[in-house]
Amino acid sequence: MRIDLTGRNALVTGSSQGIGLAIATGLAESGAEVVLTGRSRDRLDAAAASLRDQVPGAAVAAVGCDLTTEEGAAELYAAVPAVDVLVNNLGIFGSRPPLEITDEEWRTYFDTNVLSAVRLIRHYLPSMTRKGWGRVLNIASDSALVIPAEMIHYGMSKTALVAASRGFAKEAAGTGVTVNSVIAGPTHTGGVEDFVYELVDRDLPWERAQREFMRLHRPQSLLQRLIEPEEIASMVVYLSSVQASATTGAAVRVDGGYVDSIVP
């Protein structure tokens, strides 16, 4: 299958590193013009340089902004008025004993992991539907379906994101625009490495620490390893393509079999 996104522009939030940067790179490899976002200008510049090294000739732009605020979103709209592909990847996660999660932390997780995506969909979806083509992808998590005891605030936010995706897909019904969420399983990123070492012995070498984390905290994974960001990116690139035109309102799993269900 040859995916060609030439002539399309794609916006990937939270794309200065990790899954977001892998997604942006995959979209660029398929010919899309890509826009990176993040709060750190230095990280964005480094990410853009890395992407150009991997994809010579790629059209890459970067917008520094805080998308957890209306003001930051307005900065993005001014720089990028319309997009063909919107990938809401921005998110935070962390472990916390459930009874110690404060009201402020609940609000922070909702604002960052849910409202930032809803805000961008509200802005970009109308131009997609007027044009009769567009793709909205919200990066959710297995934690949306299997709420982890050590981070229920994160799980709650990802469940809400899946629900919002389904609702916006109904809003876009019959327009040629698809809206889907991607259920990402435990994925190998720098932030996840830190999280793993919060839960297992910090003196273990990484490969042993990863195996111990999966054994103790994610034993239902059928891969029995962390997923690589590029594996998430491959699904996002497919869902951004014309080949995925009949997939909408879905929660598509790239979870390594973590969710113990035969129903998607």
Rank of each mutant, 00 (worst) to 15 (best):
I3A: 06
I3L: 15
D4G: 10
D4V: 14
N9D: 12
T13P: 05
G18R: 11
G20C: 03
L21R: 14
A24S: 01
G31I: 05
A32S: 07
A32H: 14
E33I: 07
V34E: 03
V34N: 00
V35H: 13
D45L: 15
A47I: 01
A49V: 13
S50H: 13
L51T: 11
R52S: 11
R52M: 02
D53W: 01
D53A: 11
Q54N: 15
A58T: 03
G64S: 11
C65K: 01
C65N: 02
L67Y: 03
T68M: 07
E70K: 09
A73E: 02
Y77C: 04
V83H: 14
D84F: 06
V85T: 09
L86W: 06
N89C: 15
G91T: 05
I92E: 02
L99E: 14
E100D: 15
I101A: 14
D103A: 14
D103R: 15
D103T: 13
E104F: 11
W106G: 01
R107G: 00
T108P: 00
Y109D: 07
D111M: 09
V114K: 04
L120E: 10
R122G: 02
L125I: 04
P126S: 08
R135S: 10
V136G: 09
L137A: 13
N138Y: 05
N138A: 01
A140V: 14
S141V: 11
S141P: 12
V146W: 00
P148S: 05
I152Y: 09
G155M: 04
S157W: 09
K158V: 04
K158N: 13
A163N: 13
A163V: 08
A163Y: 02
S165E: 03
R166E: 06
R166Y: 13
R166P: 00
K170L: 14
A172I: 06
A172Q: 03
A173N: 11
V177H: 10
T178E: 05
V182G: 07
I183E: 10
A184Q: 05
P186E: 10
P186N: 13
T189R: 07
G191M: 02
V192Y: 09
E193Y: 05
L199V: 06
R202P: 14
D203G: 15
D203R: 13
P205F: 05
R211D: 12
E212H: 00
R215K: 06
R215P: 00
L216G: 01
H217R: 06
R225I: 02
L226P: 05
I227Y: 01
E228D: 12
P229H: 07
E231P: 07
I232G: 05
A233V: 08
A233H: 02
A233E: 00
S234A: 15
V252P: 02
R253H: 14
D255Q: 09
G257R: 02
V259L: 12
V263C: 12
